[in-house]
Write a protein that binds this DNA or RNA. Sequence first.
DNA 1: CTAATATATGAAGGATCATTCGAGTTTTGG
DNA 2: CCAAAACTCGAATGATCCTTCATATATTAG
Lengths: 209, 209
Amino acid sequence: MDVAAPTHLNARKRPRQARSAVTVEAIFEATIQVLLAEGVHRLTTTRVAQRAGVSVGTMYQYFSHKQALLYALNERYLDRLADRVEAVCLRHHGKSTAIMVEALITAYWEAKIERSDITRVLYSSAVELDNEALIEAFAKRMDRATAAMLATAPNANYADLGLVNATLLSVIFGTVRNVFERNMPFTRQADIQSQLVAMCLYYLEGAGG
Amino acid sequence: MDVAAPTHLNARKRPRQARSAVTVEAIFEATIQVLLAEGVHRLTTTRVAQRAGVSVGTMYQYFSHKQALLYALNERYLDRLADRVEAVCLRHHGKSTAIMVEALITAYWEAKIERSDITRVLYSSAVELDNEALIEAFAKRMDRATAAMLATAPNANYADLGLVNATLLSVIFGTVRNVFERNMPFTRQADIQSQLVAMCLYYLEGAGG
DNA sequence: CTAATATATGAAGGATCATTCGAGTTTTGG
DNA sequence: CCAAAACTCGAATGATCCTTCATATATTAG
């Protein structure tokens, strides 16, 4: 995410030796663990440090405060997610729009479902955060990746590709999140997923694909 | 929302005299105001009471703790929202599916946009909450209302109306939320809204409407 | 008018937490 | 091997906040 974080969320220092890189990674992992085990409202710097096997002071060497930690964690997560989706998009350049859309939905859906507990918990950790910049950067990356992909489809001829693309992304991302928020049985989730694919296909067809 | 709240979120007592009803309303309003002005992490029982013009003690007469207040606030909000959407659905029984879907999307979208600041802030206040029951109850009400409406459409003939209905709701609710979360310019929001309508129409057509 | 009931008050208790800092330990570069 | 730099430690500080309860006022029913 090549975006300037709000300065107050900057990391304090970067780890230079191997051991400190390990420390930072341990802190990230511990944060997720605490979030999973206790929830946002029990996410304490002390608890995180303890679970990571380091002292609070150490944590503050790398994160100027709690929010900076959560910010960095979300950044890391969104970066990885974006990497995955971008890779899938690249792999489908030149295919038909139908194949593209199916691949996109499947990739995103799976990335979220795979560790749905973490997904959920990160959503919640982000609430208290000034993370507009993160969301924006993520959205931009996705936008670029999928627009570039769609532009290579031989069967695509949209009046406003930008709009079609933005709509697809909002609908897909939004639907996935909604399905998440409720606790639907697996089979129902799968059904809705394939309905979503069908819906997007009808849309692309109708919109000039 | 005719659902049993988790007991620990029950209100302490119900207001019986007129003045206390006023008090409770003032507390709700104050909560929203504080949320808007200071954010979730500065939402304090004392601050709420002060803004409502009552003492903290009074607040605790009606809400056994802070979470119970937030729970009740969300419940109130979702109830009103559900009322509105239900009314719209009833008003469109017997129409064509195209008209139904357009009406549904418009109604929901507008209810959310109308006071988008409040919408956003309530989303955030709900994070710390055991509000699965609320979400579930809301979802069920919506499900019933829209399914009943669709069933009356003369041009509808779906193999699995339940699934079509659930898909529509997830897509619509999800998309609206996604559009919210990013801060898109108004015109772009409107564009996506109409694209969403188009998309749902294509879907209904394709799925047997 | 009076007793019973409902409502309101807000200082004080008790608990939790984020963050700092001075001192100790380990690693690195030369 | 040594000094500087990187890293780690964790008790102590100071602030914030939720919740209670003993007391006081207002309303209602009879």
